[in-house]
Amino acid sequence: MNLFTLFISAMLINNIILSKFIGMCPFMGVSTSMDSAVGMGLAVIFVVFCASVLSYGLYYAILAPLHLEYMKLICFILVIAAFVQFVELFIKKNSPSLYKSLGIYLPLITTNCAVLYVALDNITQEYTLLETIVNSIGVPAGFMLMLCIFSTIRERLRGNDVPEAFQGNPIAFIIAAIMALAFSSLAGLV
Protein backbone atom coordinates (compact mmCIF):
# COMPACT_ATOMS: atom_id res chain seq x y z
CA MET A 1 0.00 0.00 0.00
CA ASN A 2 1.21 3.44 -0.86
CA LEU A 3 3.05 4.72 2.23
CA PHE A 4 1.77 8.26 1.96
CA THR A 5 -1.80 7.01 1.65
CA LEU A 6 -1.20 4.81 4.66
CA PHE A 7 0.04 7.75 6.67
CA ILE A 8 -2.88 10.00 5.79
CA SER A 9 -5.29 7.18 6.40
CA ALA A 10 -3.77 6.42 9.82
CA MET A 11 -3.60 10.03 10.89
CA LEU A 12 -6.73 11.63 9.52
CA ILE A 13 -9.17 9.31 7.86
CA ASN A 14 -9.16 6.48 10.36
CA ASN A 15 -8.25 8.80 13.19
CA ILE A 16 -7.77 6.71 16.28
CA ILE A 17 -9.88 8.94 18.54
CA LEU A 18 -12.69 10.03 16.29
CA SER A 19 -13.00 7.00 14.09
CA LYS A 20 -11.84 4.08 16.20
CA PHE A 21 -12.56 5.33 19.75
CA ILE A 22 -9.24 4.13 21.05
CA GLY A 23 -7.20 6.14 23.52
CA MET A 24 -10.22 7.94 24.97
CA CYS A 25 -9.42 7.41 28.67
CA PRO A 26 -6.32 9.57 28.99
CA PHE A 27 -7.61 11.77 26.22
CA MET A 28 -10.36 13.23 28.33
CA GLY A 29 -8.04 13.89 31.21
CA VAL A 30 -5.18 15.49 29.33
CA SER A 31 -6.95 17.56 26.73
CA THR A 32 -7.76 20.43 29.04
CA SER A 33 -4.85 22.67 28.22
CA MET A 34 -2.57 23.10 25.25
CA ASP A 35 0.68 22.59 27.15
CA SER A 36 -0.23 19.23 28.53
CA ALA A 37 -1.70 18.28 25.15
CA VAL A 38 1.56 18.90 23.32
CA GLY A 39 3.55 17.14 26.01
CA MET A 40 1.32 14.10 26.07
CA GLY A 41 1.13 14.00 22.29
CA LEU A 42 4.88 13.95 21.79
CA ALA A 43 5.30 11.34 24.51
CA VAL A 44 2.67 9.14 22.87
CA ILE A 45 4.27 9.41 19.43
CA PHE A 46 7.61 8.39 20.86
CA VAL A 47 6.28 5.50 22.92
CA VAL A 48 3.97 4.15 20.23
CA PHE A 49 6.65 4.24 17.58
CA CYS A 50 9.31 2.51 19.65
CA ALA A 51 6.98 0.02 21.30
CA SER A 52 5.37 -0.94 17.99
CA VAL A 53 8.65 -1.52 16.24
CA LEU A 54 9.91 -3.53 19.20
CA SER A 55 6.73 -5.60 19.32
CA TYR A 56 6.89 -6.14 15.58
CA GLY A 57 10.43 -7.41 15.89
CA LEU A 58 9.54 -9.60 18.84
CA TYR A 59 6.58 -11.12 17.02
CA TYR A 60 8.30 -12.00 13.79
CA ALA A 61 11.66 -12.92 15.28
CA ILE A 62 10.53 -15.04 18.20
CA LEU A 63 6.81 -15.65 18.51
CA ALA A 64 5.90 -16.57 14.96
CA PRO A 65 8.78 -18.98 14.27
CA LEU A 66 8.01 -20.79 17.52
CA HIS A 67 4.28 -20.80 16.76
CA LEU A 68 3.58 -18.95 19.98
CA GLU A 69 1.28 -16.38 18.38
CA TYR A 70 -1.20 -16.67 21.21
CA MET A 71 1.39 -15.21 23.58
CA LYS A 72 1.42 -11.95 21.71
CA LEU A 73 -0.90 -10.11 24.06
CA ILE A 74 1.17 -10.84 27.14
CA CYS A 75 4.44 -10.18 25.38
CA PHE A 76 3.34 -6.93 23.82
CA ILE A 77 1.90 -5.48 26.99
CA LEU A 78 5.01 -6.44 28.93
CA VAL A 79 7.22 -4.91 26.27
CA ILE A 80 5.20 -1.71 26.46
CA ALA A 81 5.25 -1.57 30.25
CA ALA A 82 8.96 -2.34 30.39
CA PHE A 83 9.80 0.15 27.69
CA VAL A 84 7.84 2.93 29.34
CA GLN A 85 9.48 2.20 32.67
CA PHE A 86 12.90 2.20 31.08
CA VAL A 87 12.30 5.45 29.22
CA GLU A 88 11.00 7.11 32.35
CA LEU A 89 14.10 6.16 34.31
CA PHE A 90 16.33 7.25 31.46
CA ILE A 91 14.70 10.65 31.11
CA LYS A 92 14.59 11.19 34.86
CA LYS A 93 18.29 10.61 35.12
CA ASN A 94 19.52 12.38 32.05
CA SER A 95 17.20 15.27 31.41
CA PRO A 96 15.26 16.65 34.36
CA SER A 97 13.75 19.41 32.25
CA LEU A 98 12.44 16.93 29.70
CA TYR A 99 11.19 14.80 32.54
CA LYS A 100 9.30 17.76 33.93
CA SER A 101 7.49 18.38 30.68
CA LEU A 102 7.02 14.83 29.36
CA GLY A 103 7.88 12.40 32.06
CA ILE A 104 4.75 12.71 34.11
CA TYR A 105 2.67 11.44 31.24
CA LEU A 106 4.67 8.30 30.68
CA PRO A 107 3.02 6.13 33.33
CA LEU A 108 -0.35 7.16 31.93
CA ILE A 109 0.64 5.86 28.55
CA THR A 110 1.09 2.29 29.68
CA THR A 111 -2.63 1.83 30.00
CA ASN A 112 -3.31 3.90 26.92
CA CYS A 113 -5.25 1.61 24.64
CA ALA A 114 -3.62 3.30 21.67
CA VAL A 115 -0.18 1.83 22.23
CA LEU A 116 -1.37 -1.74 22.50
CA TYR A 117 -3.83 -1.24 19.66
CA VAL A 118 -1.19 -0.05 17.20
CA ALA A 119 1.15 -2.87 18.17
CA LEU A 120 -1.60 -5.45 17.62
CA ASP A 121 -2.92 -3.80 14.48
CA ASN A 122 0.44 -3.93 12.75
CA ILE A 123 0.34 -7.70 13.16
CA THR A 124 -3.30 -8.13 12.20
CA GLN A 125 -2.90 -6.10 9.03
CA GLU A 126 0.29 -7.98 8.14
CA TYR A 127 2.26 -4.83 7.45
CA THR A 128 5.86 -4.88 6.33
CA LEU A 129 8.43 -3.18 8.53
CA LEU A 130 8.24 0.03 6.54
CA GLU A 131 4.45 0.07 6.70
CA THR A 132 4.64 -0.61 10.44
CA ILE A 133 6.91 2.39 10.91
CA VAL A 134 4.63 4.66 8.90
CA ASN A 135 1.53 3.40 10.68
CA SER A 136 3.17 3.69 14.09
CA ILE A 137 3.98 7.34 13.47
CA GLY A 138 0.75 8.22 11.70
CA VAL A 139 -1.64 6.93 14.32
CA PRO A 140 -0.17 8.77 17.33
CA ALA A 141 0.30 11.84 15.14
CA GLY A 142 -3.45 11.78 14.65
CA PHE A 143 -3.86 11.35 18.41
CA MET A 144 -1.69 14.39 19.04
CA LEU A 145 -3.56 16.41 16.43
CA MET A 146 -6.83 15.64 18.14
CA LEU A 147 -5.38 16.43 21.56
CA CYS A 148 -4.25 19.85 20.38
CA ILE A 149 -7.50 20.68 18.64
CA PHE A 150 -9.50 19.55 21.63
CA SER A 151 -7.45 21.42 24.17
CA THR A 152 -7.85 24.64 22.20
CA ILE A 153 -11.59 24.15 22.08
CA ARG A 154 -11.84 23.24 25.74
CA GLU A 155 -9.73 26.22 26.74
CA ARG A 156 -12.15 28.42 24.88
CA LEU A 157 -15.04 26.59 26.45
CA ARG A 158 -14.03 27.68 29.93
CA GLY A 159 -15.58 31.07 29.36
CA ASN A 160 -18.82 29.64 28.03
CA ASP A 161 -22.07 29.09 29.78
CA VAL A 162 -22.30 25.32 29.73
CA PRO A 163 -25.35 23.71 31.36
CA GLU A 164 -24.48 22.34 34.77
CA ALA A 165 -25.10 18.73 33.90
CA PHE A 166 -22.82 18.94 30.87
CA GLN A 167 -19.90 20.66 32.55
CA GLY A 168 -16.61 18.85 32.48
CA ASN A 169 -16.53 15.70 30.39
CA PRO A 170 -19.99 15.48 28.83
CA ILE A 171 -19.54 18.70 26.87
CA ALA A 172 -16.17 17.38 25.69
CA PHE A 173 -17.98 14.39 24.24
CA ILE A 174 -20.40 16.65 22.43
CA ILE A 175 -17.41 18.44 20.91
CA ALA A 176 -15.96 15.07 19.97
CA ALA A 177 -19.27 14.16 18.32
CA ILE A 178 -19.20 17.24 16.10
CA MET A 179 -15.56 16.67 15.24
CA ALA A 180 -16.27 13.04 14.41
CA LEU A 181 -18.98 14.21 12.03
CA ALA A 182 -16.55 16.61 10.38
CA PHE A 183 -13.82 14.02 10.00
CA SER A 184 -16.16 11.32 8.80
CA SER A 185 -16.51 13.29 5.59
CA LEU A 186 -12.95 12.22 4.78
CA ALA A 187 -14.03 8.62 4.43
CA GLY A 188 -13.66 7.34 0.92
CA LEU A 189 -10.77 9.71 0.27
CA VAL A 190 -8.28 6.89 -0.19
Binding site: F166, P170, F173, I174, A177
Partner: peptide, 18 residues
Protein backbone atom coordinates in the same frame (compact mmCIF):
# COMPACT_ATOMS: atom_id res chain seq x y z
CA UNK B 1 -21.75 5.75 13.70
CA UNK B 2 -19.16 7.69 15.65
CA UNK B 3 -21.23 10.82 15.95
CA UNK B 4 -24.11 8.98 17.56
CA UNK B 5 -21.82 7.15 19.95
CA UNK B 6 -20.37 10.38 21.29
CA UNK B 7 -23.74 12.09 21.55
CA UNK B 8 -25.37 9.18 23.39
CA UNK B 9 -22.44 8.95 25.76
CA UNK B 10 -22.48 12.67 26.42
CA UNK B 11 -26.19 12.69 27.18
CA UNK B 12 -26.01 9.68 29.47
CA UNK B 13 -22.94 11.11 31.22
CA UNK B 14 -24.73 14.41 31.69
CA UNK B 15 -27.74 12.60 33.09
CA UNK B 16 -25.59 10.73 35.60
CA UNK B 17 -23.78 13.94 36.47
CA UNK B 18 -27.06 15.72 37.10
Amino acid sequence: EQFGAFITFACLAAAVSA
